Simulated scan of single mutants.
Amino acid sequence: MTKHQPFVKEKINKPIDIIRRNIELGKPTLVAGPMVRYSKLPFRATVRRFGADIVYSPMILAREFVRNETARVADFSTNDEDTCLIVQVGVNNTTDMVRMVEMINPYCDGIGINCGCPIKDQVREGIGAALMSEPHLVHDLVKASKERFPDFCIEVKIRIHDDIKQTEEFIKIVEKSGVDFITIHGRTKDTRSSIPANFEAIKYLKTITTVPVIANGDCFKPDDVDKIVKYTGVDGVMAVRGVLTNPALFAGYEVTPWKAVEWFWYYAVNYGLHFRLLQHHLSEMLDKSISNKVLREMNFKKNLVDVIEWFDEMFDLKRFGEEGFGERVEIPIKPGSGLIFSNGIILWEDSEKHKS
């Protein structure tokens, strides 16, 4: 985003309105959560096409965004189709918070305050998980923004404490700020991602919370959404690692369908994405369908042209506008590529030739 941004978003996709509408319809709100580096515009467009109601940007540091135009251009890009969009912010004071809302609200549908990032550098700066011990500061961040921009949607994303009563007290304080909804990650700041999320805690916190609640943690398969909602009673589910590996998770696919790969290619090439990020996304999307040996060859490519040529050599990669683009589920192996399906996985037909 620059000061010459050519458009201002119409506020027709207010996140809280989407959540309330889904509550009335008796269905959960589906949220693609923030990922450092990976929640860029092309990926947001892809997950949105495959069922996400609300999509987050990566976390942006407010202090850099409000002071440095170079940081603004590097950290944030959008367009008029990038909605419903919540920009997640790392912030530790009301001055930066209000200025951030003032500058970015014409270009997004809401802001989310990150109170959960456990990275030590962020915690030392007083942002992320450090805010879990500062409920009154979080209250003030939201309240100050709401006083200036009462109709702008503000969300707070938290983790749980070791003592759940401390989390309950945190929520009660923050609710008084006018926050629109709260996302609860079912782990503490010290819990490893390999440990299952604590849905029992989320279930309890939902019963004492007066604003809508989104549950975050361990949503990797389509049926995880229903399991989480039925167990906890929450109003929506956020997937993060789950949609990174499968952007079509919310559309009911167990693994990434080929049509999602083609749409991602289209958005990445047209909107622009750093080569290594594009390469990583493709590797994540295809990880469950293609053997490591085959993926390794793709990951060894050094530039965008080489990766495109590799895809064209191995698969029938349609371009936007071609018949069949964005329609197929199974990966279309090209004759003569040396690839075969075996037990649902694509691998080299001549394994000795491509032995690593």
Rank of each mutant, 00 (worst) to 15 (best):
L282H: 09
E169Q: 14
V138C: 04
P15S: 06
V229C: 07
L61T: 08
Y38N: 12
K302H: 11
N92E: 12
C115I: 03
V156I: 09
H354D: 09
D312S: 12
L41A: 01
T78C: 05
I60A: 00
N105H: 13
I164F: 05
E125K: 13
V66Y: 05
R159D: 03
Y107C: 06
V156P: 10
V305S: 15
I127W: 04
V269G: 15
F275Q: 09
I113P: 05
D121V: 14
I60C: 00
D180F: 00
K293S: 15
D224P: 01
R48I: 04
E297F: 11
S291H: 12
I111T: 04
I340V: 13
R328I: 03
G336Q: 05
I173H: 10
T232V: 08
E69H: 08
R63N: 14
T245G: 15
M132Y: 09
L141S: 04
W348K: 07
A129W: 02
M97L: 02
I333C: 09
Q279I: 09
N13Q: 12
E169N: 15
N92A: 12
F65C: 00
D223S: 08
L278V: 11
L41S: 02
K3Q: 11
V55P: 01
N270T: 14
L249H: 00
M238Y: 02
K27A: 00
L249F: 01
G26E: 00
H139T: 09
L131H: 08
L304P: 10
C219F: 02
Q88K: 05
D75H: 00
T209V: 02
Y56W: 08
L244E: 10
S291I: 09
H161Q: 13
V73T: 12
S356L: 13
R159H: 03
D82T: 02
L282G: 05
M35C: 06
V89K: 08
D121P: 12
R319E: 13
F50E: 05
V294Q: 02
A215R: 01
E330K: 13
T210C: 11
Q166Y: 14
G33N: 04
E168Y: 07
E323G: 07
L295K: 11
K318F: 10
I113K: 02
R241H: 08
T256Q: 06
L277G: 09
K120F: 11
K11Q: 13
A45S: 12
E254V: 11
D17P: 03
A129Y: 03
E327W: 13
P212V: 00
N13A: 14
F311V: 03
T95K: 15
A144F: 08
P15D: 05
G252I: 03
T210D: 13
K176Y: 09
D109V: 02
V234H: 00
T94P: 07
F199E: 02
V329R: 14
I54R: 00
N79P: 07
I173R: 07
K146Q: 04
Q5D: 12
